[in-house]
Design a protein around this nucleic acid. Sequence first.
DNA 1: ATAAAACTTGAAGTTGACTTTAAGTCAAGC
DNA 2: GCTTGACTTAAAGTCAACTTCAAGTTTTAT
Lengths: 133, 133
Amino acid sequence: MSYTITELSKMFYLPASTIRYYEKIGLLENVEHINSYRRVYDESHVDRLTAIECFKKALLPLAEIRAFFTYEKDMVANHEKILDMMKTQEEKTLETMKDLEAGLTHLQKKIRYYSLINEAIKNDSPLPNWNDL
Amino acid sequence: MSYTITELSKMFYLPASTIRYYEKIGLLENVEHINSYRRVYDESHVDRLTAIECFKKALLPLAEIRAFFTYEKDMVANHEKILDMMKTQEEKTLETMKDLEAGLTHLQKKIRYYSLINEAIKNDSPLPNWNDL
DNA sequence: ATAAAACTTGAAGTTGACTTTAAGTCAAGC
DNA sequence: GCTTGACTTAAAGTCAACTTCAAGTTTTAT
């Protein structure tokens, strides 16, 4: 099965320009050009983009993702390097999640506070105090 | 109590240049300059930086954070706008957390996989298959 | 009194991840 | 055979969030 850039674009909700950009920086490889012009993709590229999507969700920078693909070409030789990369990234991701959770808690406190303010204004009652939450 | 830029810098693990930058883009306000030269900060600035830290953890862009501070100056007039902002941001944060969790799961699967590869190589046994996980 | 350390400014530079632009190519339909 | 539309290229532009730089000022230590 083969795909045009527009098909991939729709599949992954990515602008075609981004898909071309990924090729340019080496995230997508071996892209054929029919009549030495238009790009043609196959399952391998769909797999790549799927993997990229996952890694991006885990907040890996594109350079790291590319490094992973490079190492993965000889995973027997590089399995330790890859394992290191993934573990380092796992820690970063966990760290980010902790921050996000703290941020979310802060946000939700603000939401409670401003909901109370809303109430107080409606009922013409005294405004609540941030420290009373 | 008053603080120098270096003191704040150490308190918040931020380079002084960043603190100056935050002032420049309007995140820090009313910064006095002794002898019309060096910056002097007080508790209000410590509070601001603490709030900025929280919002940044929740991944709010600096422009949003500044907007919040602006609205907060008249929270009686702007409480609905603020509430909207915070709720919108809460959703975005929850969305990001979901993505992060998905990314983390993917990462952990990779870690399991490459640990098995590691084992297999040590024991000279056949390499595991990604689909067997 | 002088030099070094710590701070100041405005402007320019950096990084990552794209996006936009301008000019060109090619197949398809009228 | 000409236009339209979907694609191509390389290069430049954008955006957020800083960082670095060059040149100047002030405080502190010798």
